[in-house]
Design a protein around this nucleic acid. Structure first.
Length: 614
RNA sequence: GGGGUGGUAGUUCAGCCGGUUAGAACGCUGGCCUGUCACGCCAGAGGUCGCGGGUUCGAUCCCCGUCCACCCCGCCA
């Protein structure tokens, strides 16, 4: 339980509600007369003696109502409803020998209640306040104030608070200023869909809620703030997942006159301290680093879970030794043949391998090739391979008898995508995932990625990310029609990955207006467009912009991992559903036409589904 | 936008291969109980089977549509 609350000073008018928290009484207090407040957690009415567990944020205390102490109070207690809020006054006594409860911190003592006042009588609850209750999520969200009474939810919010507190302490100590940036801001072109806010005072004009404070923090660097941070909400109007909310919180920071290593070192220090102070874990720094390229080659994605092996192995050489058309065709078409180890999967039945094949097909692969390793090699495709190739492949994968080798041959993107997902699944299934937290930096991201639909390049990180020094000359003077050259540009960007989850990312920014213009050009933003959308940034870069860079950490995801939560909703006090609705307040909801008129808005809803009228 | 899982008492679930009175546990209400801690015992109340339509003599069950929650793909620089 968190912190020592100054309950002794909690005075409202002349009435002193309570002396301490329920969880704070102990043997040291035996003999004292005190006041407690809280919620009726459990009610054990023996007719004569009545035991009530009184709960507040600090814990639980057992109250005893004895008719011999005060008959009227005892009678009152007889009618107490669960989750009612009460205040009691009574004497702390040691529990009789043999009736102590070692399961709770206050279990050695109990409060003999002399007087009781019911501050708020509770109706029967829609669900009970228990940690292990499996109530439907919609009910929990609708009655969030009840859900949050569960100790587990409280504990999650306490952890969240402590992450914020540690962050503020650490960054303050490192010379950072906490500065707020606007929530009503300008719509950005690249990236996620914006949440829009119409402007009454500027008819037809819209604010957007920030997807991140990116531009403002860069402007703060130009303003000479040197080191900025903020724990702030970001908004993205995209579809939700178990670890994604439409509004989420970032620990956002930016520093002047730094290189990537400075930012990385600072963040390693922050995370190290967080995990030490909150989880009691000593996270080793510096964290390992992988380049994007290496991460893709070895794990198939840019946020590998480093808690287990099962690395992807390139099998092009062995495939070339074979006469297996599927592999050869993939290679000839410029694709890849790679494999992963299926630990202890040689016993798979035909049915099971078929199921696995269906799975990878659902992920986008054309098929799955497999070779079981027993005394020899067993598969319908071994006949296409010389013995030497089979042995080499087994060696690369460190396959032992009893294992199975799993191959995907396709375009590189498909091979990596499918195998990385397969790797995760196999890791989980085989119980190979260790329980030690594994941090990782992924560096040297491509500057741009090709967008098939729009047939143009777009920024992989964001358009303000600096290219690496070696690419600066090309960015400033090169010929952008050379797609291969443009594709190979790399960014001074870095992501921080924890247990296979991207918990943050950042970069060194462009602080030269000419470079910024050329990058806009690369991603197909015209001079005119750049002016309209980012004129203020381009201007700022002309009036003394220091080299700067920073990073943003996903607070919700960090707290999720620290608390072992499966859902981001369990670490947010008032989260939204998968449809981005708030079941507590019923937002979003319709507004009346007067409000719309004031904002110069007219609705054009799809055909009415309410009244089936002709 | 697509795929999947679920929706039956206040809650968590069972059930009904279409049939007359839809069950359990917990909770709730009343009673009994002076050492419990998920107290115990006895009795009782409690249902639009998510919603709309269809098939049928008859639908909680079958069919179609729809809404809600969750998981995933697309999407999320």
């Amino acid at each position: 339980m968190h912190g020592n609350i100054g309950f002794g000073n909690a005075v409202s008018g002349k009435l002193k509600y309570r002396d301490v928290g329920c969880g704070q009484i102990g043997e040291k207090d035996v003999g004292k007369e005190i006041s407690l407040c809280g919620w009726v957690f459990r009610n054990r009415d023996h007719g004569g003696l009545i035991f009530i567990d009184l709960r507040d944020r600090t814990g639980v205390a057992q109250l005893v109502f004895n008719p011999d102490v005060d008959a009227a109070t005892h009678d009152q207690a007889h009618h107490l409803k669960v989750e009612s809020v009460i205040a009691v006054r009574g004497e702390i006594r040691k529990r009789p020998v043999g009736t102590e409860n070692p399961a709770i911190p206050t279990g050695m003592v109990e409060v003999y209640v002399k007087s009781l006042s019911i501050l708020n009588r509770a109706d029967p609850l829609p669900f009970s306040i228990e940690d292990n209750s499996e109530v439907s999520e919609s009910l929990r969200l609708r009655y969030r104030y009840l859900d949050l009474r569960r100790p587990e939810m409280l504990s999650n919010l306490v952890t969240r608070h402590r992450v914020c507190k540690t962050t503020r302490d650490y960054l303050d100590g490192a010379g950072f200023l906490e500065i707020e940036t606007p929530i009503l801001t300008k719509s950005t072109p690249e990236g996620a869909r914006d949440y829009l806010v119409p402007s009454r005072t500027n008819p037809g004009g819209f604010f957007a809620l920030p997807q991140s404070p990116q531009l403002f923090k860069q402007i703060l660097m130009v303003a000479g703030m040197d080191r900025y941070f903020q724990i702030t909400k970001c908004f993205r109007d995209e579809d939700l997942r178990a670890d994604r909310q439409p509004e989420f919180t970032q620990i956002d920071l930016e520093m002047s006159f730094v290189g990537a290593d400075d930012v990385i070192k600072l963040v390693e220090g922050l995370l190290n301290r967080m995990f030490k102070e909150i989880s009691g874990l000593d996270v080793e720094t510096p964290f390992p680093r992988l380049t994007y390229r290496e991460s893709m080659e070895r794990f198939g994605n840019d946020k590998p879970d480093m808690r287990f092996g099962l690395e992807l192995k390139d099998m092009a050489e062995e495939a070339r030794m074979s006469t297996f058309k599927v592999f050869l065709d993939a290679l000839d078409a410029g694709g890849r043949v790679k494999a992963i180890l299926g630990k202890n999967m040689a016993a798979y039945s035909r049915r099971e391998t078929d199921l696995l094949t269906q799975e990878v097909q659902a992920m986008g692969a054309k098929g799955l090739a497999w070779i079981k390793v027993k005394d020899g090699f067993e598969s319908t495709i071994t006949k296409f391979f010389p013995e030497e190739a089979l042995r080499k492949m087994a060696e690369k994968l460190d396959a032992q008898p009893g294992d199975m080798m799993l191959f995907i041959a396709d375009r590189e993107a498909v091979v990596h995508d499918v195998l990385s997902r397969l790797r995760l699944e196999l890791g989980k299934k085989s119980g190979l995932i260790g329980n030690e937290d594994k941090f990782l930096w992924v560096t040297d991201f491509p500057l741009l990625e090709w967008n098939e639909e729009e047939e143009r390049f777009q920024a992989m990180h964001h358009p303000f990310t600096s290219p690496v020094d070696e690419n600066l000359e090309y960015v400033l003077n090169g010929d952008f029609s050379d797609r291969a050259a443009v594709s190979s540009l790399r960014a001074r960007a870095y992501d921080i990955v924890l247990n296979g989850s991207e918990i943050g990312g950042g970069s060194l920014r462009i602080h030269n207006p000419q470079v910024q213009r050329r990058v806009f050009q690369l991603i197909g933003i015209s001079e005119k467009e750049a002016r309209e959308r980012f004129g203020f940034l381009l201007d700022a870069l002309r009036y003394g912009a220091p080299p700067h860079g920073g990073l943003a950490l996903g607070l919700d995801r960090i707290v999720m991992i620290m608390t072992g939560s499966d859902s981001i909703r369990d670490v947010i006090a008032f989260p939204k559903t998968q449809k981005a609705a708030c079941l507590l307040t019923n937002a979003p909801s319709a507004v009346d036409t007067k409000q719309l008129r004031e904002l110069y808005l007219k609705l054009t809803l799809p055909e009415e589904q309410g009244e089936p009228e002709e």
